[in-house]
Design a protein around this nucleic acid. Structure first.
Lengths: 306, 306
DNA sequence: CACACTTACGATATTCGTAAGGATT
DNA sequence: AATCCTTACGAATATCGTAAGTGTG
């Protein structure tokens, strides 16, 4: 028992035209092939659908019953087809992104806005969280992809570099080091230092780069806003990646590039390996890559605003 | 764009099994043919439905969307199939019969009852009316077939004899002719005669057979019950077909066979030519023919009851 | 190296169209 | 004679299965 949409369309064509020849034309078939098709349909259903006298073709009682059903099935099927098309052409869909708070608060919304304007039917979700949780969301399939740093275990994931992010020293404007144009790791020794929590990728990177034993950490907080406040009150200094600097735009704060060693982290677009993204997610990721040059200029705008 | 139910079943099979090989077995196909089938489906829809790594098969985002639709379509289709089957096997359907009042009041209900008991899902309709209107109902498609006498214009109709119906003289028991065992046309001359209306097939047959000029018609009524009442009051006599005699079972009435000429009418099963009956109507007609031997015995029962 | 999907390719079935047949008006 | 559906039959097409190819764990 195998009936196709074409069979249904053919059936409906005869039912409407009441004529095999015209129905066959409508279906781009020879009349004989068409006749065979209808006969086949009748035998599959086990019912005569048409009463053919040589001069007239009419639906049988059972044919009428089937006509209603066939029409309904065709409509249903057309809806399914159009829904699939909607997804392919991104009039429908869903994109779920996990991103570092720094990206989620700065550059990402700008691109998100553009994407949403272009594809109003596609719903977008954004989870702003630390790298590890970003990766977890991707692994669990709760996010299509993540924009974050690479984690220690990247098995099953595929990471594509999106941009690099340099680290800066932030301190109070009255801090002794504030007069310097740039700073090195040696300058930070014995300075009261505000750390982010160990789970933060920033912290992990700093620990690796700056020999933690020699840094006089005096405090450990979870959120950048806390760091900014502590530094703003001159309780200590900190080292922050460029993308997070928008939280440190304050007259009392001074930002200085950290040189020697220059610390750079890479932000990746990370997704499940061997799993294609949905059409919409693919498109959104493409747009993100297309707009990646604006990452810094967007932040610039943000800083100028303060 | 031609997608078949088989395609949907195959798709659902992989979606559930998450494995082409098992799904192929489930569909009684070789794995390679199955693979081609799915690829074909994907290309027809214009979307990748499955993410195949060599080790795992999963639905893509679009595949999940399609899975819901495919399931729904299959369910819908199964319902359509079962509805068609219901009609073929007469768990559903409709039979509409037009029949002469004499049949509709006597034999027909008995067969109808049997049919309805065997096929409770099939709705039955019965129009009890004179032959001309019976034929009209059949022509208009309002009745599947009619049980009545043949009309003057039988074009487009197909008549199959069902039974014959002989005519009897009915009169009051005190009527002079009541003592006779049988009567001839000559006996009826100059007797006050109760006629049915000209539209009645009975009347037409009598007019043709009994030389109306020589019959002293004194009254013309539409319904047999009126004839019975008039005759019951000894206002006149009448000639009535056997099948209608059940209305004349009364102690005051006497029924005598009419011989010379013996008048016989034929009752036909009449339907549209070149139009098959619905399965249910065909079955009902078959049952009617099978039970036709009971036409007289049913009437006998009726008469015995009085 | 075993498993699982894809590709290649010859074999098999289906489906197609032309042409002839048959029935009706 | 014209119309319209069916049947016959060779041809085109699609589908199938075996077997080889490929990538992964």
């Amino acid at each position: 028992m195998n009936i196709s949409m074409r069979d249904l369309r053919a059936f409906i064509a005869v039912a409407e035209q009441k004529n095999f020849t015209r129905a066959a034309e409508q279906c781009h078939l020879s009349q004989s092939a068409f006749s065979a098709l209808i006969q086949n349909l009748e035998s599959e259903l086990g019912v005569k659908l048409f009463a053919r006298s040589t001069r007239r073709v009419e639906l049988t009682a059972e044919g009428k019953v089937f006509a209603d059903s066939a029409n309904r099935l065709l409509v249903e099927f057309a809806l399914v087809q159009s829904e699939m098309k909607d997804h392919v052409e991104m009039r429908k869909g869903r994109v779920s992104v996990a991103a570092l708070p720094s990206l989620a608060a700065g550059w990402l919304p700008v691109v998100l806005k553009e994407f949403r304007a272009n594809h109003p039917g596609v719903s977008t979700e954004l989870a702003d969280t630390l790298s590890d949780e970003c990766l977890e969301l991707v692994r669990a399939g709760r996010a299509d992809f993540a924009l974050c740093a690479a984690g220690s275990d990247m098995a099953g994931l595929e990471a594509e570099p999106l941009c690099t992010d340099e680290f800066y020293v932030v301190m109070h404007r009255e801090h002794p080091l504030a007069r310097r144009k740039s700073l090195s790791a040696a300058d930070l020794l014995n300075q009261p230092f505000i750390h982010l929590s160990h789970t933060s990728s920033v912290r992990q990177l700093l620990d690796a780069a700056l020999h933690p034993g020699r840094i006089a950490g005096i405090m450990e907080v979870a959120h950048l806003a806390s760091v900014a406040s502590l530094v703003g009150n001159n309780i200590g200094i900190s080292v922050i990646p460029f993308l997070a600097l928008f939280q440190f735009s304050h007259p009392d704060l001074v930002i200085r590039p950290l040189k020697e060693p220059k610390i750079v982290r890479t932000i990746y677009a990370i997704r499940l390996a061997d799993r294609p993204l949905s059409v919409a997610a693919e498109a959104f990721l493409a747009l993100l890559k297309k707009r990646r040059s604006k990452i810094r200029s967007e932040l610039g705008k943000d800083e100028r605003r303060h």
